[in-house]
Amino acid sequence: MPEPLLSVENLQVSFETRAGVVRAVDGLTFSVGEKEVVGIVGESGSGKSVSMYSMLGLLRETNVTIEGSVKFQGREILGLGDDQMQSIRGKDIAMVFQDPMTALTPVYSVGWQIAEQIRAHGTENKQQAHARAIELLAEVGIPDPARRVNQFPHEFSGGMRQRVVIAMALSCNPKLLIADEPTTALDVTTQAQILELMGKLQDTYGSSIVLITHDMGVISEMADRIVVMYAGRPAEMGSRVDVIRTPQHPYTWGLMGAVPRLESKKSRLVTIPGNAVSPLDVPEGCAFAPRCDHRMDICSTRPAMRGTEHQDACWLDGVQKVTFRSERHSA
């Protein structure tokens, strides 16, 4: 197997707060191959965004501790200095944020903002950067780009703004694109446009994508591989077919059962009892145990991720998983 583009090894992110230490990410290990789309799914507070921010050196508060290893193209990037990080961020690794209104500054034209990024990382002069900005806008499907390039973010609709943010992210041909809930703020039909665009651009640019979302539906349509997170820890990881068709972790079962389907019969939704654990007070053993229907004595010890291609952190054995899963399915 060739060396992955990005490999994250035992990432730990914790925040020192007045109320105690919050372990926002606790032992995340995963890798992203060339041209691969990896989806990270989890509910609010599961650590999916924080893990990405910490990797890119975007968490700079003094109360943060980041440990582990993040290798990008074989080079350790955790703990790199600002200057060195600056040359990677935006160039080799670009990011698309959830809210396109806050990701763009309202006081400059969108063309200026795209050109700024091109000039920061390349050798283009002002005119060339401006011309490239127009090309990029055309590429992400903004009609009449030569006119739109001089407009300001408030003159664009939500979907169009997200296209601008994507154009900006692509401006330096990034090898890795991190998209943090890129369609959550958008309507269904606009979401479909943006997802289609991202798929198309991935083909042209050959970037790898890390897609962060809470939406099982979006992830199952986009990702080659899926990482399910709960309370800062990975619960399950595997190829799309494996995770969607034969989920191994009780939390994944709950997550999938809780989504109302379009072709649903009017049955009750399968719920996960209780509320998400407080990040201040994650159980010693399996983080999901207090809400799990299949809790056993051994669950007071933290399970490691087991398996090779399709991994999960659960103490149930293979036979039990198959039985419980099919029970849920028929219920």
Partner: peptide, 12 residues
């Protein structure tokens, strides 16, 4: 609207 609503899909 219905055709683009994201649905659980294993790709097969």
């Amino acid at each position: 609207l219905l055709s683009v609503a994201p649905e659980l899909d294993d790709g097969t």
